[in-house]
Every structure is written in structure tokens, then in C-alpha cells.
Design a protein around this nucleic acid. Sequence first.
DNA 1: CTGAAAGCGCTTACAG
DNA 2: CTGAAAGCGCTTACAG
Lengths: 349, 349
Amino acid sequence: MATSGTGSRPPTIADVARAASVSRTTVSHALNGIGKVDPRTRERIKQVAAELGYRPNLRAQRLRRGEAKAIALASSMPFAVAGGASRLGFYMEVAAAAAESALLHGYALVLVPPVRSGSALYSVDIDGAIVVEPDRDDAAVAQLRERGLPYVALGRPTAEGDDSPYVDLHGGPVADLLLAHLREQGARRPALLVGAGARHSAVDARAAYLRAAAAHGWPPVVATAPEEGGEQAGYEACAALLAEHPDTDAVCALVDAFAVGAVRAVRDSGRRIPDDVMVVTRYDGLRARTCEPPLTAVDLHLDQATADAVDLLLARLRGETAATPAAATAPEPRVVPRASSLRRPPPRP
Amino acid sequence: MATSGTGSRPPTIADVARAASVSRTTVSHALNGIGKVDPRTRERIKQVAAELGYRPNLRAQRLRRGEAKAIALASSMPFAVAGGASRLGFYMEVAAAAAESALLHGYALVLVPPVRSGSALYSVDIDGAIVVEPDRDDAAVAQLRERGLPYVALGRPTAEGDDSPYVDLHGGPVADLLLAHLREQGARRPALLVGAGARHSAVDARAAYLRAAAAHGWPPVVATAPEEGGEQAGYEACAALLAEHPDTDAVCALVDAFAVGAVRAVRDSGRRIPDDVMVVTRYDGLRARTCEPPLTAVDLHLDQATADAVDLLLARLRGETAATPAAATAPEPRVVPRASSLRRPPPRP
DNA sequence: CTGAAAGCGCTTACAG
DNA sequence: CTGAAAGCGCTTACAG
């Protein structure tokens, strides 16, 4: 409470020890509740510490204890997708959830913006990281490995030998769900548009799509676009796709930026949405909701998934490697039907 | 490059010194570019360090140097407003911009979620913070002051003697802009709905509104609602306002959650938007854009303002108190007209 | 129950 | 130009 009249720098453990006429060892024990101190001594020390306004120096504690008590959120997703224009995307939604969850456990969340080349992860003092949807050769993952830092992936890692823990975002089932929805709405020749990278969301969706195409007898049409390209790349890929496969009646564009570009391409080709071509996407964010027409998307329960990822990471940091499950499973994804794919009124549950 | 075959823990400066047959002092000088080392020695040391894969221990550096190289983003804004339902708000938009700006300067951004009571700021090792729109008696500011940490406000601080640097978000001019827009669209009796707190956005807007009311001969109608109340509070305040002042023909609801609630209240009272009552808000985020009808809002140039705030803070940390301006000024705000207030087609510039 | 001492990995006067 | 030594503020065996 009271401000120490002594000097200007904050009091150290030595100041407390002196004021309480004990050793620094005893102060440390008393304040950290290690059970080897006389209860009365402990109380006295606590009181003195409070009077002096003592707070342990976090830097010193961390050097000594060998931990940063901080984790980072990192991603190799290109800026155009992860941030860009309105910036309010997948990444920041995950960031908010992760910060809350981390702080609840006494960890700080360091927000590493999706940097282009980024030696970013080297200059930040952290114990580990959450990597959002790592690519097969992910820059963020590479940096973490080189630093020897543990990480948990949000979304199944696709790199060869990567057996790091992860939270499953259900890449395949999400695609299945969207394709089922399209079929239900009358689509007979849906095409798939995915990022050129090898993130689980693209890889698993492609596999699911090919399976569905075989099952239903669709001619499979899969287009890819560079993630860095954002809306424009989606536009171009979709325009090319429609030119080559004019009987396409639905586009499943898993990156929201692509989906918005696809909507433009569909319109520019003289087709109507959803009557001639439906468009659906995955992440239910600003882009999907403000698109004209609003895009059917998927509720991924990102909050829950992110909290699970943080839990997984912290368990690993605690060294519970044995007890820690190798993966958590986010809640069931759910389609949020909107005008971009609704030819019939949505079924009332 | 090469992994040291020695042990498993990362090499320290002592390892480098040993391998290069010099003292730790010299290694430190060589690596930090302090100009007292023979160029050839320096090169040799650098090479050895690289071979060993040496990276300075950030914890140790920071303890020694007495700085955390991290800043926090903090806010006392209630969760319902700052995060809540879709979480994609003002706060996260600022977070993204701040993280990028901070990292560019070698600082990490710690994301402190708008916690309810929050001793949050005590457990985080930072050199300073950006506080978003501090209230007159702001919890985050109080914690920072008690820790003796410098901070910069995003939005003019309203506390009595608070002369901390800040970035002006133009609370008054924003209100003027919105009111002028409403007048232009034909409103003759606009009401103001603000948060009950004393953040600059509420305080300055109220003053601007009263000034405008006097100038144009409106009967001033100002309602307040608790920020924690979110949409529902906005609904109730607006419903009461309309009951008491039935000839209100526009509502300027500066908190986006309030504005969305206001839209419902207007409709439930049997009035149409914008024909009977227009509704406008300040922050142009997800809520404003996805509202039905979409809400007229203001482009605050948050990116630029946030970058300025970070610059201001870092200048203060560098001790450039003298050279540091006491305030920066965000770019001119600009109205983004939408259906919620457009009775006439927008003027073509 | 309490304390003297070592050490976490750096940096920086200070002396040579 | 180079190094021995002190010290940043803690915690933790270890000894009493």
C-alpha cells in the first residue's frame, strides 16, 4: 500500500529481507509459500513486503526459473488472407481467445503478426507457441523448431514427420458438410477452390471433395490459387474455372478472400448467385457476412478450439508429455446457411 | 548452422568464449558491435558463435539491461463491448496494428484481454502499455500507474491531472461529422446515445452535441447506457428515449453495440429506418456492417492512429520525453454513409 | 525453522 | 585491444 520513502527504484527482495530482519532465502520461501517458514515469520514478512510495495522482478524470476511465462501466436498465413483490408479475421479471432485462455493460466500471449519473411520469432522471449494452420513447410514452424521451442498446431499439421500435438479443425468433415449442403440445395456440379499451400484445410478438403465427387458421379473440378493473391487470385481462379467448366453450378471456396473474389467472377460471367452458381466458404468472419450476398460458411467453434490448443501447449510445457493427448478435437463444425447458397428455405429444425 | 555435439542445452556466451579462446567480455563486445575489438577477432568470434548456433538468452539480457522489450495493449472496456459475441471489434483491430508496429521496432506486443477485474497487468513483464480509450477512473491506467509503467492513451484521457501522451481520436469532430451528415439527410431532431463512462468519445461527443443542438435550435436529448450492458442496454435506453421524445428522428449511438440495440428498439416502436428514424454509429466494424440495415459509421483510421500511439510510447521509453510530442493526431475521420441514414443518394464527390 | 552461498546468462565499468 | 570481476534480482540445493 504505502510507497516506500526510501528511493525511486522499486524495492527488491533484499530490501524486504533487511526490513524484516531475515535473509532473502526466508523472504523467498515465505512469499512463495514454500512450507519451511514459521507462520508468524511468514506473516510478518508478508506484511513488510506489502508495506514496501514489493513485487518480485519478473525478469529475474524468469531468468532463474528458466521460463518466460509467455507463449506466442504465430502464423505463416500471408497477410492478404490473415489480415489485410479489414484485418478482422480468423487470426485475430484466434488471438483474442488465446490471450484470454493464456492469461487465465498465468501466461502472457505475444501476438506475432503474420510477418512476411519474419525473423520475428527470434526476438521474442517465449516458452512455446500456437501455430495457426501450418503449411507443409511452414516458416513459423521452422523457426520454432530451430529455436527448439514446443508448439501446438491449430489444425492438423501436414508436414511429413510432424507429430506435434494439434487441435483438429476437421478439414475433411467441414468440406463434407459444405458439399452436402450444396447438394441439398440442388447443386449437381460443385467445384472446389482451395489455397495453393498444403495446409490441412486445403489438403483434407481436396481429399474429401474427390471422394464425394466419385461417390456422386461428379466430374471433379479443383482449382487452386496462391493465398497471397487474396480476393484477386480468387477472382481469377474462379473466372478460369467457369470458362473451362461452364456447367459448374456451385463453388466451394475455402478461403474467405477467395470466396469474395469468386462472387465477383461469377457475376462478371453473367451468372446469378445463388440461382446459377452457389458460393460457400469456410471461415464465418467479416468477409463472409458482409459479402453481397452474404456467404454460407461454417461455425468452427474457434474459441473452444483455441482454448484447447492453449491447454495442450501448457500441458506440454509442464512436461506432461505422457499424460498429454497428442490431439484435441474441436466441437463439431456446423454450417451457417446464407443467401449465397440458399435456393430453398433452410430446413427448420 | 551446425548443431553443437556437446550437450542438449543451448550454448551460452561462455561456450562461445571458450570455443573462441577469448573472454565473455570480448564475445559480448564483438557480438554487440561495440567498437573495441580487433576486426579479425570479431570475425572469428562471430563465426564461432554461428557454428555453435549461439543466440543470446533474452531473459538474461533483459534482466541485465533492465528492460522487457515488450509492451502491452490494455483496456478497461467491458467485455460485452470490446469482445463478446463476435469478438471482432475495435480492440482487436487495434491489437493487430499495434503488434505489427511494435515488432517492427523490436518490441513484442502482449495482448491483455479486456479482463473484468484483472490483476492481469501485474503478471506481465512489460516496459509500458497502450491503453485504449481510458475512462476517467480507468482500471488499466490505475494498475499501470501503481506499477510505475509509462503508457500512451489511444484517445484523449479524461482523468483530471492525466497529462500522459495520447493519440487524439477526435471525439468532438467525429460527433460533429455524424451530426452534420444527419442534418444533411434531413434529420431535425437527432438524439445522442452514449456510454455511461467518461471516455473521451462520450465526453467530447456530448459537448459537441450540445453545441450543435444550441446552434441549430434542437431540443437536446442525451441518453446514456452502461457499457457492460451491450446491445440490450442500447435497446432499453433507445426505447425509453423514443417513448419520452417521440419526435426524435435520428439516433447517434456512438457505441456500436448500442447502435445495434437501438435499431431493434426503433423497429419495435413501429418506426422505420431510415425513413422515420436514422441511426448512425462511430466504429466501422463488423457490427456496423452486418447490421440490418447496415449502419453509417466513421472511418477513424485506426491503423495509423495505433501506429502513432506505439511510436509515442517507444519514444517515451527511449527517454525522449523532451523531444516527444505530448500528443499525436490521427488522420481526419471520415463518414462512411450506409443505408441506416441514407434518405437521399450520397453526394458524389 | 533459518541463512550463506552459488548460479541463472548476460553486460559493463574498470583496469591493464 | 582484451579480460577479471561485479552485479541485474531472483531461487534453490545445502548446511546448520
